[in-house]
Design a protein around this nucleic acid. Structure first.
Lengths: 151, 151
DNA sequence: CTAATTTATATCGTTCACGATGCAAAAGTA
DNA sequence: TACTTTTGCATCGTGAACGATATAAATTAG
């Protein structure tokens, strides 16, 4: 068959795309009550590890463009989760810091990872098997990061 | 450490999310010249396997909602790739069929899968290793599909 | 020290992705 | 047959994601 490789069934990328979407969906039961979206949750993960970071650092850690992160942070500021202040040394920078609400949310989010693990176990597929993908995904991501740069 | 599990580094989901985004980005060099986006390419994959399908079938195969697929198809119709006609038996249905342009594009897209494989090989990480994720991703997707249904 | 360049962020336009809602056709029920 | 429910698709609003472009501050070059 000449077009065998164009079959959906044979495509890893489609699976990645779908798995990522459905996974984000699996967060809904836990993030909705907190009024968070998944990308907003990711920003909080970054800030919980280290508060007071410029936009660029956050974007870099999430492998996102700043023009994605900026509106995200604006919405999070409006929601009272973070504040954005001008950098002191470099006044081009916007330093993003957690508000009291943003800090406190960590406590409420503490159990989300294990809840998700439990959900995944419940519906077939072990967490171990999924964790085994980590090194491969990391290599894939690392490779694709390079591809972006080299035309 | 109490919040160890909230570290970005320990999260499979973030890797899936990132890998999926970067992978879609890797399609750009091949899809842009054809004037296609990745989801539009996916719709074409579905239609190339079987022409003349109702919106629902396409959405179901891509695991998307119809309210995502409908505007997608409207844009593809405007681009002259598909046409949408009322179903004969069930007039609620919209049957999506390939135009001449949509059919011919298959020939131009034929080599995209191998191009992508080549790109991935080039930047570290073998295709074999990535293909090994397929069964796990399939189980994960199957599990998450169930989770959607059961509250 | 002025001019050109780079950097950090923001804005805009387009395309997904999806929950909520609407609507008309079909199917099921009384 | 009339009525209710379900189904298939569309519309609307919101939040990403990102290319292109803009702007101001910092850096570098001359």
């Amino acid at each position: 068959m000449e077009y065998e490789q164009l079959k959906l069934e044979n495509q890893v990328c489609f699976r990645l795309y779908t798995a990522a979407r459905l996974t984000m969906g699996a967060y809904h039961p836990y993030l909705d009550p907190l009024g968070l979206t998944y990308p907003q949750y990711l920003v909080l993960l970054v800030l919980w590890e280290q508060d007071k970071q410029p936009v660029n650092d956050i974007a870099h850690k999430l492998l996102l463009e700043t023009n994605t992160v900026t509106p995200l942070l604006q919405r999070m500021e409006k929601a009272g989760l973070v504040k954005r202040t001008k950098g002191k040394e470099d006044s081009r920078q916007r330093i993003v810091s957690l508000t009291k609400k943003g800090i406190e949310m960590r406590e409420q989010a503490k159990h989300i990872p294990e809840c998700l693990s439990a959900d995944i176990i419940k519906n077939e597929g072990s967490v171990e098997e999924i964790s085994q993908m980590i090194p491969t995904l990391d290599k894939l991501i690392e490779g694709l990061k390079q591809t972006e740069k080299n035309p």
